[in-house]
Computed example of a mutant assay.
Amino acid sequence: MAPDDPVEHLIGLLAKLPGLGRRSARRAVLRMLMDPHSRMLPLAEALRAAAEAVKPCSICGNLDAADPCRVCSDPHRDQGLICVVEGVADLWALERAQAHHGAYHVLGGVLSPLGGVAPEDLSIPALLSRASTAREIILALPATVEGASTAHYLMDRLRPVGVAVTRLAQGVPMGGALDVLDDGTLAAAFRARR
């Protein structure tokens, strides 16, 4: 196919999205092209509108068309309870699960010396300034080496503020069989028992 083929170009762009490989992108493009007026043109308009309107929240870092975002603007949320997450996807997952009814803070990543992510690359100063008005900071960071080192770093930085700092429990998932879990998960489950 020609390098300026719009179909191949679209397939290539969609294939770069998480969860879509080249075959899935090709099927999606074919489906859209079969009825472009009801499938493709509304999608193109929605993409344009979102690209123009959605920005990071100036308070928490969530992505929304409003600033502050709908979560930060919600008067029913407990603003004294701040859940710190690595990225917006984690915030959205917690919202989908209706697991947290307080405020959030998106770090924008986790510390990773090998990946070149240092404390100054994350939104830590904004978290520290918000911490003075919080009664609890919940660290909901990934159960990885980088997530653990980021949590330890944040606990050290938050200690002088005097706010309570907690972490999510880690361990055996619902429906998980012990014989298939890795050693680290089993050890974390024993440490977090209640």
Rank of each mutant, 00 (worst) to 15 (best):
P75T: 04
R130F: 00
V85K: 08
V180Q: 14
L91N: 08
V29S: 13
V54I: 15
G80V: 03
L111D: 05
D90Y: 14
R96L: 06
G12R: 08
G115P: 02
N62L: 05
G21M: 01
L168K: 06
P113C: 07
A164M: 12
P3I: 00
P6H: 06
G102W: 13
C72D: 09
L43W: 15
D183Q: 15
L128C: 05
R27D: 02
A188E: 04
R194L: 08
P36G: 03
D183L: 14
H9T: 06
A148G: 00
A49Q: 07
D121K: 06
M40E: 03
D4P: 12
A169M: 03
P173V: 06
H105I: 01
A49M: 06
H100C: 00
V85C: 07
T185F: 00
G176D: 08
A65R: 14
R135C: 01
V165S: 10
H9V: 02
M40K: 02
A188N: 10
E95M: 08
L181R: 10
K16H: 09
M32P: 03
D156C: 04
L30M: 10
I137R: 13
Y153T: 10
P113H: 08
D67W: 06
H101F: 11
D64P: 03
S132H: 13
L186M: 10
K16W: 01
C69I: 13
G176C: 12
A188T: 08
A126M: 00
H76V: 09
A151Y: 02
R130M: 03
A131T: 12
P42F: 11
A97M: 12
V71C: 06
R191G: 00
V110P: 07
R159C: 04
D4K: 10
D5C: 14
K55G: 03
L128M: 13
V163W: 00
D121S: 05
I138P: 12
V161N: 11
L13S: 08
E136D: 08
A169R: 10
R157H: 02
